[in-house]
């Protein structure tokens, strides 16, 4: 199947599901309008959701995505307690700076999710991405090392493995 068609089908199903969840369907007219609007969205913006072919099987990707969500929430809760501790501490024990990390991911969607996850996890915030060299610039609230290999290990690697399974 061509990839644009595939993308359109996914967008249509997703839009329709969201419509059914948002409106308490009492009448066939509501369902008809939902289908109409989903079709409109599909033809206007359907081809942008999926742009590259993935190598893994969909079910396997979905399972890895679930694992990823749990890991992500765990990291996020840790991040919040860390920042809360820093903010409450009377001396403000911070040591900020911008460091570089490397990434092995190649797909746009994977790098986007990695950057967003890094922003929401302990003490780190993605500032910029160098797409040619596959490097991310990270503002880190407590710099423990400036060496690129060590920072990669500490910040990026915990997500990278699962993200490779999901998005590549």
């Amino acid at each position: 199947m061509e990839i644009k068609t595939k993308s359109r089908i996914i967008v249509f199903i997703f839009a329709l599901l969201v419509w059914f969840a948002l409106t308490d369907i009492k009448d066939y007219q509501e369902a008809l309008i939902g289908i109409g609007i989903s079709l409109l969205i599909t033809f206007l913006a359907g081809q942008f959701l999926v742009t590259t072919a993935k190598s893994q099987h969909p079910v396997k990707r979905f399972l890895h995505f679930i694992i990823y969500i749990f890991r992500f929430f765990w990291e996020m809760i840790k991040a919040n307690f860390e920042v809360a501790y820093l903010v409450i501490h009377p001396m403000l024990p911070i040591k900020p700076g911008i460091v570089k990390i490397k990434t092995k991911l190649t797909k746009d969607s994977a790098i986007t999710v990695l950057a967003n996850s890094i922003t929401l996890t302990p003490g780190t915030l993605t500032v910029d991405i160098n797409e040619d060299k596959k490097e991310l610039y990270i503002h880190w609230i407590k710099v423990s090392s400036t060496d690129i290999n060590e920072t990669t290990k500490e910040i990026g690697e915990k997500f990278e493995k699962t993200l490779t399974e999901v998005f590549e």
Partner: peptide, 21 residues
């Protein structure tokens, strides 16, 4: 955190993480 931390980048850290959560 937005009030106490020193510069714009540190403040963004507090603002995004804690406010999102």
């Amino acid at each position: 955190g937005l009030v106490r931390l020193p510069d714009v980048y540190n403040r963004l850290q507090a603002a995004t993480k804690c406010v999102t959560f």
